[in-house]
Amino acid sequence: MAVAELKAPSRLLTLNRRQLATGFLVVLILLVGLASLAIGATQVPLERVIATLLGTGEARDDLVVLTLRLPRIVAALFVGAGMGIAGAAMQGLYRNPLADPGLIGVSSGAALGAIATIVLGAKYMQYFGVWAVPFGAILGALAATFLTQAIGAVRRGEGRTASLLLGGIAINALVGVVIGILTFIADDRQLRDLTFWTMGNVGRADWSGIGIVIGALSIGSFVIIRQARALDAIALGESGARHLGVDISGMRNRIILATALMVGTATAFCGMIGFVGIVVPHLVRMTLGPGHRHLLPLSALGGALLLLTADLAGRNIAAPLELPVGLMTGAIGAPFFLWLLTRRQPS
């Protein structure tokens, strides 16, 4: 009886902490979102922002708030959320806090697919229109992911994760060489586009492509969130998860395909954005525990907040110039990654 009485308050305290964290993140997202609509090269007072959102604003404010700023905010929210979920899923799948989609080559593969489509696929872009670059990015993400999987499968047991991460580093280096070659043969117009992809930027987001981003990231997030219990089980090891009835191969394929869909689409529309998938899930895990039923949605909220904040900072630090959001997340994530490396070595 005494043990039961002790466990109930503990579970209630954990639940309250998670609810408080969820509410806190939602409030911060709303505040940073409003600040992003109001602050920039052209200042729009908050009351005029609200009037514009309610449909009673002036034409000039409609242009700034609804046409220029709101699409990039929506893109930052969904891309950040998708990167957070994808990072949490990868870390759970490989049981390692360093297994980020960028580190294992998914992001660079997606960027290569998008860049190759831009430089070499003019004919296909005529046929597929707005879908051409996302399709190329998704194919690149899938190819990089399965190549990394094949490298990781060379070693079994405890060495598999190390092989996976080292293989991802090698793939990133190889992709960098190919991107360099494509950059060399690109014309001036293509070079401007390539700069956008390699640095990461949500500034080009518009309503014509937002629906694709929302659809792809929502589908991928839904698929991954449904794997929450299986990800909890695999924390016991693959043999332990199999004893609990988890289809390891099916779960791995679903997570890989969903991650490739999300990262490929995000990279196609916003370029290479790194470190969100490392920083956010790890902070949530350290603060609120490793259970994926809560870790995945909270990582989505945290990723959305991080990318939205990074975009706001990038637009205002050197105003009227805009620093690409990929540079801002790198400035935040690289020191955190170094700290993580010194704190715990990959197994």
Rank of each mutant, 00 (worst) to 15 (best):
G250D: 08
N201I: 00
V26F: 12
G209I: 02
I29G: 02
F337V: 04
G80V: 04
R72E: 04
L28A: 15
I185Y: 13
E58M: 10
F269Q: 11
V154H: 09
L288N: 02
Q190T: 04
G55M: 04
A313H: 03
V74G: 12
P335W: 01
A4I: 13
T183Y: 10
A132L: 07
F24C: 15
T56L: 13
W207P: 00
I138N: 10
L338A: 14
D187N: 15
K7F: 14
A21L: 14
L120R: 05
L166N: 09
V26A: 11
A153H: 09
I181E: 11
M90F: 15
K123G: 14
I169T: 14
S249C: 02
A81L: 10
A313V: 15
W197C: 07
T67D: 15
D62E: 15
R11T: 12
A89N: 12
I248Q: 01
L341D: 08
R48M: 08
A143N: 01
T267Q: 01
T259M: 05
A81R: 07
V223E: 02
L312D: 01
A334K: 06
Y124Q: 12
V325S: 01
G121P: 11
V3L: 13
L93V: 05
A2M: 08
A162P: 07
T52D: 11
D61C: 03
T195W: 04
V223C: 13
L288I: 10
A8E: 15
A2S: 14
T183H: 07
V65H: 08
L296Q: 00
A230V: 05
G209H: 06
A122V: 10
A318S: 10
V130E: 03
L164S: 00
A233N: 08
E47L: 11
I181G: 12
T42K: 13
T329H: 09
T42F: 07
V133R: 05
L147W: 13
P346L: 02
I115S: 03
G333V: 01
V106T: 03
N16L: 12
R204I: 05
I219S: 08
I73K: 04
M90T: 07
M328I: 14
R252G: 02
L321Q: 14
V27S: 13
A331Q: 06
Q227A: 07
V65R: 03
I256F: 15
V284T: 04
R252Y: 01
L288W: 03
S163H: 11
V26C: 13
I278W: 05
G303I: 02
G167C: 10
S163C: 09
A331S: 07
I181K: 00
L112I: 07
G209S: 09
Q227L: 03
R226N: 11
R72F: 04
G289L: 01
G289M: 05
A116Y: 00
G274N: 09
P134K: 01
T183M: 06
V154G: 04
T198H: 00
S239P: 09
I29N: 01
Q149L: 14
A51C: 04
L28F: 13
G168E: 07
G264Q: 10
F184R: 02
T67H: 11
